[in-house]
Amino acid sequence: MASTPAPQPQPKMNRLGLAVLDYRGGKTTLCAGCGHNAISERIIDAFYEMGVQPERVAKLSGIGCSSKSPAYFMSRSHSFNSVHGRMPSVATGAVLANQRLIALGVSGDGDTASIGIGQFIHLMRRNLPIIYIIEDNGVYGLTKGQFSATADVGSKLKTGVINELPPIDTCSLAIELGATFVARSFSGDKRQLHSILKAAIAHRGTVMVDVISPCVTFNDHEGSTKSYKYMKDHEEPLQDVNFVPAFEDIAVDYDPGTSVNITMHDGSQLRLRKLEEDYDPTNRIEAVKRLSLAHEAEEALTGVFYINTEKPNFADMLNMTDVPLATLPEERVRPSRKVLEECMEELR
């Protein structure tokens, strides 16, 4: 009996013809329920949906639970798990060597705000083209539960120890220092994080996203301000974040009265539907002020705090030739015999 076999369901493809599987990584070794795993999932989705060739991405990290996570997404991208707190310099070197790379840095709150604060500050200051994600749980996981420098005052460890030192707000710092896309999100806020990450891929400059990412083992209890429960109860989004990539139909109406619309370099649109009247995410001073107020009021404010699509990034400022420095041929990097003769003549 003649029959036509039922067609196999084809996996969905992105604009490059790649499936989401092509963006997956190894099996996670982090705790079940760790916020970092959810962030890895959002990264996979964002790069898949944006249709980024995985081979163009360089994943960079320092040391800690967060810094292990690049092993769990995008195995087709090169990755460098470097030393504690010093990923920014490694990332800077990599971008200088090949400015066509899309650098994705993954760090933690210890890796960034304590041991790495110096390099973090200078990375922000340079506005290096990179997406810098802090997987922020307020606690050291790999060394079993010590406070980090982003822990809030009054936050309690499992052992009962209470944090009395003020937290470092990495978002305020990043804005003040020169990062051009600064946001905070929550690993449990799938929609918001997804949109922010897609917009991050379209940005050219430093994107700093602090993602509150609860540590289910050491910091998810009553008294923690970085627990799932606390964030679910307290998260206050500044806007409703939507992103329309350039390759999609962007002729969707928006109302300037209720939305801020940002056109990115590649023509894609970041649409921020205002949940607060008059918040202008292109105003640096206002952004820092709003974050200060959030601290006073103990709000867990999320959203895109600041964006600037005009400022030249570090790679632009260095005026490097278009071919990546890494692959320049000998004739372009070794001057001629005549040049040596000229140099010698000057020294005679």
């Binding site: 800077t92 060597a97 790379l101």
Partner: peptide, 13 residues
């Protein structure tokens, strides 16, 4: 750190 990052990515650093 920059030397290492650049060397990893193929530059003469």
């Amino acid at each position: 750190g920059m030397v290492i990052g650049a060397g990893w990515a193929g530059a003469r650093s």
